[in-house]
């Protein structure tokens, strides 16, 4: 079924730092709503996410940006009483369709969380976990290769290559977060969702992750939720501004930050509230 989408990307991989208009749409959200029991967390959201670009979701706390992010790989399914409405098209297919296999969807759309959450296992086992459960590797040496490649892509290899059997929880915060990125990459997703990946990291570790995001963009579609407007400005090509469960404005990052159309966006980026 969905494996057809795992092949080579259909559109050109050319990345345009400015407009993004030439890029294919990876995700298209159509009237997405989220209710937690009685409370409506998201009001009909319409949003396109272009392929192989970084899209930043910004907005004040509780504005629904993380909730929206979690819709993209149906992580909200595991929350009791959470109901998602509307359509989210991934490569033209609605992922909210009950027939869609979330397991496969999440393999295609990986996620990195706010707090680094390495499994209480060795570094190697953390990275090999995904390939093992999905059965994407046949032999032990293939697995070694996958682990090495993933760690390299997450620019962690040089720091941990001599202690792959040490527990992942023993790494520093920044290293743990890169381990989580490596773990996500090892599954070969097409999209990586990042939920405030740097909020618990120091500035140096943050810089490393941002650098990494810039590199990953060449191969992956990245959606990042961030509190830091500077970060959004540094890493993303497109930015969506969320406010009170609605998308107020979406556009090229440069335009959003220099010439916002909506007064609320302007208020937020100039620090009048947040």
């Amino acid at each position: 079924m969905m494996t057809s989408h795992n092949n080579e990307p259909q559109a050109n991989p050319f990345v345009d730092g400015g407009s993004g208009s030439r890029s294919t749409t990876k995700f298209a959200a159509k009237d997405v709503t989220v209710h937690y029991g009685e409370n409506q967390a998201l009001f009909p959201i319409n949003l396109d996410i272009p392929e192989k670009q970084v899209t930043a979701l910004i907005g004040p706390s509780g504005c629904g940006k993380s909730t929206f992010l979690r819709c993209l790989n149906r992580m909200n399914d595991i929350i009791d009483g959470c109901v998602v409405g509307g359509q989210i098209l991934l490569d033209g297919r609605n992922i909210n369709d009950p027939k869609v296999d979330v397991v496969q969807l999440r393999a295609q759309v990986g996620m990195v969380f706010q707090k680094p959450n390495p499994f209480p296992k060795s570094i190697f086992d953390n990275v090999s976990y995904g390939p093992k459960i999905h059965g994407t590797v046949a032999t032990a040496s293939d697995l070694d290769d996958v682990v090495e490649n993933s760690l390299r892509r997450a620019s962690l290899w040089d720091e941990v290559k001599d202690r792959l059997q040490d527990p992942g929880t023993g790494l520093s915060g920044g290293q743990q977060q890169r381990l989580c990125i490596a773990r996500a990459i090892a599954v070969e997703p097409e999209v990586i969702l990042m939920d405030e990946p740097c909020s618990s990291l120091d500035p140096i570790a943050t810089a490393k992750i941002e650098e990494l995001i810039n590199e990953l963009m060449q191969n992956y579609t990245i959606v990042i939720v961030t509190h830091s407007m500077q970060q959004a400005a540094r890493v993303s090509q497109r930015t969506a501004f969320f406010h009170l469960g609605k998308v107020v404005e979406i556009g090229n990052t440069q335009q959003i930050f220099t010439n916002p159309k909506d007064h609320r966006t302007q208020g937020y980026i100039t620090g009048r509230y947040g």
Binding site: V103, G110, F119
Partner: peptide, 27 residues
């Protein structure tokens, strides 16, 4: 066992039983 470990595992496309057997129970 912290919820973040479950989310980490589900986020990679693990089924519930895989998460339980390979992440939660060892933890």
């Amino acid at each position: 066992v912290p919820q973040s470990l479950r989310e980490g595992s589900y986020g990679m496309g693990a089924t519930q039983s895989e998460t339980i057997k390979q992440v939660i129970l060892p933890a």
